[in-house]
Computed example of a mutant assay.
Amino acid sequence: MPRKQAALPHHQSIGKQIQKYRSGFKTKKEAREEYSRLLLTKSDALEEKQDDVLFQHFIEDIFLPWYKTQVKGRTYDNRLPTVRKHFTFFDNLITTEVTPIHVQKWQLALSKKKYRSSYIRNVQGLFSMAMDRAVVLGLAESNPSKIVGNVKKTKTKIDFWTKEEFEKVISFFYKEDYYQHFLFISLWFLFMTGMRIGEATAIQWEDIDFDTGVLSIDKTLYYKNLENYSFVEPKTKASVRQIALDGDTLTLLRQWRNVQRSVVQTNFVMSYNGIPTQKHTLANAITRFSKKAGVHRIRLHALRHSHASLLISIGENPLIIKDRLGHEDIETTLDTYGHLYPNSNFEVAHKLEGIMSYQTGIENEDTSPKNQFTAHYLRKCLKSNNAITMQ
């Protein structure tokens, strides 16, 4: 009975396909099994050759599809442009050929473009995550980003409006105009609560208890465009919180609710047309009205810093500020706003003055041995006293 043969595919390095034969199989089944086994072996060999993958292909075809499964949708959408903008520096390199010197040159290139160190650190953090994934998949032997290390962390200056600056700005709003009334209440709401913009634009009227004066924050708004927005979980567990609103804010919110309902029916507090407001709408308002008021322009997020500054200026406890802002720990609050306590050291010194009540002893009751320095001091005192007595 003749032995069976199996024609097996084999690829040489030049890419030309040839047939390789093996014989000695008793049945066609054995031949097919051997054929399948060698196909798998060939597949494994090809996978081992994936170290020739271009970095650009690795990012688009391997890393980004995986990264999308690891983070929230809004996080992925926010970071995708960053990846595609800054990772192009490595596009023409084979993934295994990305070295520490490449990463260092990339860092310097970003620094020369005047990006903030915090931004560069975030970008490199994403790059390091990508290279970690390449290592896991066998596409790189090590992570060159970790070898180089990230750029030095520098303290970012916190920009904000003081109470007086905010008063100047809002005095230019004409509340009899419906749209300006909307802008007024939006900036006031942010300044007086310190909410993140995503938290504020998600607030519904039922989130405000006008009887108790409590605002409940349990969601944030993911806004992609006019037709695509939704509620998502807050940034952290600490972001789910309640904020006690002051009487002035509650009064202004009641007034706005009545005006808004006369024009449009919506559950969004910060809305003039039935849909949640967009960031650039409020950012543009800050630009226009700060110019009218002769006050320096701040970013929209700086209204959150302004609220923290306001609380610090009235002597509020950092723990209270932490809870109102929704920080996970007090270290975050102090690291961010600690420098806004410039006079607190002197205030403490003033409070300590006169706090102690005491009277020193009228005779020495300590009979412990004296060292050479105290003994010398005592001899000097005795000589001085004797000289005074002889006089």
Rank of each mutant, 00 (worst) to 15 (best):
K168L: 15
T336Y: 00
P234E: 03
E353W: 05
Q372A: 15
E199C: 10
E199T: 02
F191H: 03
I120M: 00
S117E: 09
K4Y: 12
Q242I: 13
F184M: 07
L38C: 02
F373E: 04
A302L: 08
A202L: 09
H57I: 00
N267I: 04
N317W: 07
T367N: 08
V263W: 15
P318E: 02
H339T: 03
H350D: 13
R121G: 03
H57G: 11
G125M: 11
I298H: 03
M356D: 01
L80W: 08
Y21G: 00
Q260S: 14
L352W: 07
Q242M: 03
K322G: 04
L137H: 06
I94H: 09
R133P: 02
G338I: 08
I314N: 14
M192Q: 14
K26A: 05
Y76H: 12
G213C: 04
S216I: 09
K68D: 12
K163C: 05
T236G: 04
P342Y: 03
F166D: 10
H102C: 05
V148C: 15
N385I: 00
I286R: 04
Q70G: 09
F90G: 04
S36F: 11
A134P: 08
F25I: 00
K383A: 10
T277W: 00
T88C: 02
T154N: 10
D335W: 00
G149F: 03
R3K: 14
R324P: 12
K219Q: 11
D211A: 09
T333A: 06
L39F: 08
S13N: 07
V264S: 13
L54D: 09
N78V: 03
G361W: 08
Y341K: 06
R297Y: 09
Y119N: 14
W106H: 04
I362K: 05
W256D: 04
K113T: 12
I355L: 01
T69S: 13
I286K: 01
K237G: 10
I321Q: 11
D248S: 12
V103A: 04
L137P: 11
A375I: 00
L300V: 05
Q255I: 07
V214N: 00
Y223H: 14
L311N: 10
T156P: 07
K85F: 09
Y35I: 04
F63Q: 09
M356E: 13
E33P: 06
Q278F: 08
G194L: 00
Y272K: 15
T220A: 14
R3A: 05
L253W: 06
N150H: 10
Q124N: 09
P100Q: 05
E328P: 05
S271F: 09
I14P: 13
M356S: 10
A109Y: 07
M192R: 12
Q180P: 15
R379V: 00
L40Q: 10
I330L: 08
N258H: 11
M129K: 05
G73T: 03
S36P: 06
N386Q: 13
P318H: 11
Y76Q: 04
